[in-house]
């Protein structure tokens, strides 16, 4: 098919350079690259040179049963209009990842969010300080083993209202 050419070319190019990497294009203007942790920054640099100038977002998924965190780097190219997802998995027990700030400056905020919400450490990010939460004392809230309903019960619901307090 003609319209899928760009995706197909990119796929072959990536596969020829990187080993242990899977590339697929599930639909038009989408590219999924699954690679290993150590190769991430190389793959990102490679894609950046090929027009993927902007890092849109970084997502994190907690695969609690596999004991892994999956990190998804969303890259966007304005010339070809392709949206690329670069994925990798890291260990859940000791979640450490290299910061992507040297490649994309705006990774800082996204990494900060993931650090706060999932507890993933990003080596080389100078600003891992709380972004949204105020003096959070529990485990990172977006992890799957954090039960929000139980937390609400034990934190907010146990506080008596004024009437309850006055009536004993």
């Amino acid at each position: 098919m003609k319209i899928m050419d760009r995706e197909e070319n990119l796929r072959e190019e990536i596969l020829s350079v990187f080993k242990n990497t899977e590339v697929s294009s599930p639909k038009r203007k989408r590219l999924t690259v699954i690679t290993e942790k150590a190769l991430i920054s190389e793959v990102m640099k490679f894609l950046k040179d090929r027009g993927f100038k902007q890092l849109c977002a970084i997502s994190c998924i907690d695969w609690i049963e596999e004991k892994e965190f999956e990190l998804i780097y969303h890259l966007s190219s304005f010339e070809s209009g392709i949206h690329a997802m670069v994925k990798t998995k890291i260990d859940r027990e000791n979640p450490v990842m290299k910061s992507m700030i040297p490649v994309f400056t705006n990774a800082q905020t996204y990494e900060r969010e993931i650090w706060e919400m999932f507890g993933v450490q990003f080596e080389g990010n100078p600003r891992l300080i709380p972004l949204f939460l105020d003096r959070w004392r529990d485990i990172p809230p977006f992890r799957k083993d954090f039960d929000i309903r139980e937390y609400v019960k034990r934190t907010f619901d146990v506080i008596p209202s004024l009437e309850e307090k006055q009536n004993g």
Binding site: L133, I148, V152, F156, P160, S161
Partner: peptide, 17 residues
Amino acid sequence: NGGMYWDSYNTIKRVDK
């Protein structure tokens, strides 16, 4: 009473407390 966010971990449920 929290409204939409009755089970959110970061919103206050009853402000009059």
